[in-house]
Amino acid sequence: VTLFVALYDYEARTEDDLSFHKGSKFQILNSSEGDWWEARSLTTGETGYIPSNYVAPV
């Protein structure tokens, strides 16, 4: 499992996005959609889309 960590805070703009804070960790579920990845937050357990340029591999 590849884990990613948030580099910045992000406020969701749609109900499909995940809001998160810098330092939040994610499991990436689908990275084939270009700049928006489907991810599960390891902090909240919620699933949604995150901007790929806001995260980096742990």
Rank of each mutant, 00 (worst) to 15 (best):
V1P: 12
V1I: 12
V1M: 13
V1W: 13
V1G: 14
T2M: 13
T2H: 12
T2L: 13
T2Q: 13
T2A: 11
T2R: 12
T2W: 11
L3T: 09
L3I: 15
V5T: 05
V5G: 02
V5M: 07
V5F: 09
V5C: 09
A6E: 02
A6C: 03
A6S: 05
A6F: 01
A6T: 03
L7R: 02
L7V: 07
L7E: 04
L7M: 09
L7Q: 05
Y8S: 06
Y8H: 08
Y8Q: 08
Y8R: 08
Y8D: 07
Y8G: 05
Y8L: 08
D9E: 06
D9H: 06
D9W: 05
D9A: 06
D9G: 05
D9V: 02
Y10L: 02
Y10I: 01
Y10F: 09
Y10M: 02
E11H: 10
E11A: 10
E11K: 10
E11C: 14
E11F: 09
A12P: 04
A12N: 05
A12Y: 02
R13C: 14
R13V: 13
R13M: 12
T14L: 10
T14G: 15
T14W: 14
E15W: 09
E15I: 11
E15F: 10
E15N: 12
E15T: 12
D16R: 15
D16F: 15
D16T: 14
D16W: 15
D16Q: 14
D16A: 14
D16Y: 15
D17G: 15
D17F: 14
D17I: 11
L18P: 01
L18M: 13
L18I: 11
L18A: 01
L18G: 00
L18N: 01
L18R: 01
L18Q: 03
S19L: 01
S19I: 02
S19M: 03
F20Q: 00
F20A: 01
F20M: 05
H21K: 15
H21Y: 11
H21F: 12
H21D: 09
K22F: 05
K22P: 03
K22T: 07
K22Q: 08
K22R: 10
G23K: 02
G23M: 03
G23A: 03
G23F: 04
G23T: 02
S24L: 05
S24C: 14
S24P: 01
K25P: 05
K25G: 05
K25Y: 15
K25R: 12
K25W: 15
K25F: 15
F26Y: 02
F26W: 06
Q27R: 08
Q27P: 01
Q27K: 08
Q27S: 07
I28K: 04
I28S: 01
I28F: 03
I28E: 01
I28M: 04
L29M: 08
L29R: 04
L29E: 05
L29A: 05
L29P: 04
N30W: 07
S31E: 09
S31K: 13
S31W: 13
S31V: 11
S31C: 15
S31N: 12
S32I: 10
S32A: 11
S32D: 11
S32K: 10
S32L: 12
E33S: 14
E33Y: 11
E33Q: 13
G34D: 12
G34M: 11
G34C: 11
G34R: 12
D35I: 10
D35T: 10
D35V: 10
W36T: 06
W36M: 13
W36E: 03
W36G: 02
W37N: 01
W37L: 09
W37M: 06
W37C: 04
W37V: 06
E38M: 15
E38D: 05
E38H: 14
E38G: 04
E38C: 15
E38T: 11
E38Q: 13
A39R: 00
A39F: 03
A39H: 00
A39V: 14
A39L: 02
R40V: 12
R40E: 06
R40Y: 14
R40D: 02
R40W: 08
R40Q: 09
S41P: 01
S41Q: 07
S41W: 04
S41I: 09
S41T: 04
S41F: 06
S41N: 15
S41R: 07
L42I: 13
L42Q: 06
L42Y: 07
L42C: 14
L42P: 04
L42W: 07
L42S: 04
T43C: 13
T43F: 08
T43R: 08
T43L: 12
T43G: 08
T44I: 02
T44A: 02
T44D: 05
T44V: 02
T44M: 02
T44G: 04
G45L: 06
G45P: 01
G45W: 06
G45Q: 06
E46W: 06
E46P: 01
E46Y: 07
E46K: 12
E46R: 10
T47D: 04
T47F: 07
T47V: 14
T47H: 08
T47R: 10
G48H: 03
G48T: 01
G48L: 03
G48N: 01
G48A: 03
Y49D: 02
Y49I: 09
Y49V: 07
Y49C: 11
I50P: 00
I50A: 00
I50H: 01
I50E: 00
I50F: 01
I50W: 01
I50S: 00
I50R: 00
P51T: 02
P51V: 02
P51R: 07
P51N: 08
S52P: 07
S52E: 04
S52D: 02
S52R: 12
S52H: 07
N53V: 08
N53K: 12
N53L: 09
N53M: 11
N53D: 11
Y54G: 05
Y54T: 05
Y54K: 06
Y54A: 13
Y54Q: 05
Y54C: 10
Y54N: 04
Y54S: 11
V55L: 12
V55D: 01
V55G: 01
A56T: 12
A56R: 10
A56S: 09
A56V: 14
A56E: 11
P57W: 05
P57H: 06
P57E: 09
P57A: 10
P57D: 05
V58T: 07
V58K: 04
V58G: 05
V58L: 13
V58Y: 12
V58S: 07
